[in-house]
Design a protein around this nucleic acid. Structure first.
Length: 432
DNA sequence: TCTGATGCGTC
DNA sequence: GTCGGAC
DNA sequence: GTCCGACGACGCATCAGA
């Protein structure tokens, strides 16, 4: 498959803002793609090279990509900057620069790019490391761009800087996968009526792997993708509400209030093969938090579980919870780990339980998940792992006191959580 | 060996 | 994390 | 209501270059 085919599809996508139309453009693309290539096509369309937890980074941003472009197009940095200003973004500027080069350029891209070539080149860029790596990355990108026609160049550049600007993202791609491979050829349904693919994606957020599976095997291909310790679950998010009436409207008369801790979210997977930690955006952060790993190991020796925590730095003497700024010293750190563990000690407030010993709890009501969580934590005993502070309320009007209490405790505010029917864990959605 | 530029992920 | 636009 | 992109403050890592 030519990369240009992909680029042309991207151009079509950009031409509309209607989601149904975008979905159908993707459906045509997917149905016309060799099944073998579906993983790569989907990753590229997502603007990535693999699942988030694998942590592949291109390591090239606007500045460095600009250098590669200027070198390839044979123009100065200043000229390129002027083009960016005129065209609106780096991708369009590249396209313009390439297009204006005339017949000489045509000879350069005689060997037209394939999806494989682009994917593999970008993967190579991502794999370079060490001294001289910046130059090497630029050179690799340059070699790729050298063979690119103007339109392909537009999207390669945008892919590398991480701004495809297609107007589509995960949800639209998932719906397109569903329609392309699980619906009959000419079938029409209400958008998102089944969400089979999305449901799988929520517990196995690797769109390339899923796309490959459905393209090759249809619905059967999804069978192997259940919730699994070691594979992150998409996080359920909260929505900001301004006032008590809004909360009442959304939650009904009964709900639960919980402290909203001013920390960092950690999804912890404990199991037979050890502990895995994931960030809110499903990056692997296990090695950054040896203290958390250790706490999990000693607290949950013989269980298999997926839990969610808010990690907050505290003062062990006073018990005081410290603001986000403090925990941010822990984020992304690879040097001086031992010191930072000492300097920024964490408390882990558990607030949800998604999986326990072979049982998926996502579809259970919140009360049940919470009960199971508390009983699990009960076994954990004293230590840095604690249940989040929660209050069951009959009358959300009375939430003001709880809010003030939360603020006084060093939290950002409170979260209202629905209970009863419909209070299952809505992975990837804003439901709190 | 140090410093600034750059990239990237957290909220 | 916030915000606003489009559907 | 949902999805998407554009935006900001902050801290850390890596690398180039002095």
């Amino acid at each position: 498959m030519k990369y240009l085919t992909l680029a042309e599809t991207y151009q079509d996508l950009q031409a509309t803002s209607k989601r149904l139309e975008m979905r159908d453009i993707l459906v045509d693309l997917f149905r016309g793609t060799e099944p073998r290539l579906m993983g790569r096509v989907v990753y590229l369309t997502q603007g990535t090279l693999g699942p988030d937890w694998e942590g592949l980074q291109l390591g090239l941003g606007e500045k460095l990509v600009s250098r590669a472009i200027a070198l390839t197009a044979g123009i100065s940095d200043d000229d390129l900057e002027a083009l960016v200003h005129r065209e609106g973004d780096l991708g369009l500027a590249t396209e313009a620069a390439f297009a204006s080069k005339g017949p000489k350029q045509v000879q350069l891209f005689q060997e037209s790019l394939t999806v494989d070539r682009v994917f593999e080149s970008l993967t190579m860029v991502a794999r370079v490391e060490g001294s001289g790596s910046t130059e090497k990355r630029i050179r690799l990108l340059q070699q790729l761009l050298m063979d690119a026609d103007p339109l392909s160049a537009r999207y390669i550049v945008r892919t590398v800087v991480g701004k495809l600007r297609l107007g589509i993202a995960d949800m639209t791609i998932l719906e397109a996968l569903e329609k392309a491979f699980l619906w009959a050829e000419d079938e029409e349904r209400v958008m998102g009526s089944d969400k089979v693919v999305e449901t799988i994606y929520n517990v196995h957020p690797d769109m390339g792997a899923i796309a490959l599976a459905v393209a090759n095997e249809g619905a059967e291909g999804l069978a192997g993708f259940g919730i699994q310790v070691g594979v992150p679950v998409r996080s359920m998010l909260a929505e900001r509400l301004g006032s008590t009436p809004e909360i009442l409207e959304k939650m009904g008369d009964r709900c639960a209030f919980e402290y909203k801790y001013d920390g960092m979210r950690i999804q912890a997977h404990v199991g037979l093969e050890g502990v895995h930690l994931f960030s809110r955006r499903m990056e692997t952060i296990t090695s950054q938090f040896p203290d958390v790993v250790q706490a999990m190991e000693s607290a949950f020796a013989d269980v298999e579980a997926i839990m969610e925590f808010e990690a907050v730095v505290h003062n062990p003497e006073t018990g005081e919870l410290l603001p986000f700024q403090e925990v941010s010293h822990r984020r992304g750190r690879v040097h001086g780990l031992a010191e930072s563990v000492e300097d920024y000690p964490l408390v882990l407030f558990a607030f949800d339980l998604l999986y326990l010993d072979g049982e998926e709890l996502l579809l259970q009501e919140f009360q049940l998940r919470r009960e199971a969580l508390e009983s699990l934590l009960g076994k954990a005993g004293e230590g840095p792992i604690r249940p989040s502070t929660l209050r069951w309320v009959e009358d959300p009007e009375g939430g003001d006191d709880f809010f003030l209490e939360a603020i006084a405790a060093g939290c950002e505010g409170i979260i209202a959580k629905a209970i009863g029917e419909g209070s299952h864990y809505r992975a990837g959605a804003r439901g709190w």
